[in-house]
């Protein structure tokens, strides 16, 4: 299990990285933490002409507030995000999801952006980005553009990234104080990719609680539903069950060795209801009396 030969490029600046990407067009792989790419290279499932190692580029590891958004650079490690007070405060959903991402060891070098770029249907980070309505920032020597998380991921391991582009960052709409969030997943073992994951956010808007529920691991990308609930409701269980059930019924779940379509659909409804109810209750409490 040794990688096929490739040209190794280690740019010192983003411009150099983008130039190299342009040079190799569709045939280069960008390496950040290497947690997903390393295994693909070693098994020779991917054999790029070049590997562009962005780890030496300074400034890509920043977590910055830009207006109502939080920008995380392409080298923000999952462990640093988990330990970041800023993310704990502004992105409680991501903070709740991160302990489920891989293991203590893999989070140490694994990046937020790398997980999004890899686009595994069961991955937690892209699910959170989608539920929060975040964006992916793409850079190439042609310029920069932003794509909504929902549009960026186009299928299992498929994204809207052009061959000469790299992820220049993720843009996360900040949560507001009083927002309710919840993240729940089921996996065969601790630390495995989720068989099904549910992420929910809810926010008070006048007399209503506006919510978004996302389900990961069911289809080839995260699926979302949004709606609102009366903030004064005494309980949200029924509404959550209804909303999650409606979404689950619309889905065409994946079927693999780990789980049947029926089980995934069931978990989608079950976990979705739990997550949504928790988010609504939390938002209701916070925003209430």
């Amino acid at each position: 299990m040794k990688p096929a030969a490739f040209e190794y490029c280690r740019p010192d600046t983003l411009e150099e990285a983008l130039a190299a990407l342009a040079e190799f067009a569709d045939d280069a792989a960008v390496m950040s933490g290497g947690l997903s790419l390393g295994a693909l290279l070693n098994t020779r499932l991917v054999q790029p002409a070049a590997v562009i190692d962005i780890n030496r580029i300074t400034g890509l590891d920043r977590i910055e507030v830009t207006g109502s958004m939080l920008h995380t650079g392409p080298l923000v490690r999952q462990a640093d995000a988990l330990n970041s007070p800023l993310i704990g405060e502004a992105l409680p959903l991501l903070a709740a999801a991160l302990p489920n991402v891989g293991h203590y060891q893999t989070r140490s070098r694994g990046t937020l952006a790398g997980s999004v770029a890899h686009a595994d249907p069961s991955a937690e980070i892209p699910l959170c980005l989608a539920v929060l309505g975040g964006e992916v920032e793409l850079a190439s020597s042609r310029g920069r553009r932003r794509v909504g998380a929902g549009d960026f991921i186009q299928g299992a391991l498929e994204t809207g990234r052009e061959g000469d582009e790299m992820l220049a960052g993720l843009l996360w709409p900040k949560s507001q104080s009083g927002d309710g969030v919840a993240f729940i997943e089921v996996s065969e073992r601790h630390g495995d990719f989720a068989i099904a994951a549910a992420a929910a956010v809810a926010r008070r808007d006048g007399d209503a609680l506006r919510y978004t529920l996302g389900l990961g691991g069911i289809e080839d990308r995260a699926r979302l539903t949004s709606g609102s609930a009366p903030a004064a409701a005494s309980a949200f269980a029924e509404l959550a069950e209804q909303a999650a059930g409606d979404l689950a019924r619309q889905l065409d779940p994946m079927q693999d060795r780990r789980a049947s379509a029926a089980y995934r659909r069931h978990l989608a409804g079950h976990l979705g209801a739990q997550a949504l109810e928790q988010a609504l209750v939390r938002a209701g409490m916070e925003g209430g009396t």
């Binding site: 089921v186 065969e188 068989i195 780990r258 789980a259 049947s260 029926a262 089980y263 069931h266």
Partner: peptide, 8 residues
């Protein structure tokens, strides 16, 4: 005894 099998 996978999750799916036991759930079933």
């Amino acid at each position: 005894l996978t999750l799916d099998r036991v759930w079933r």
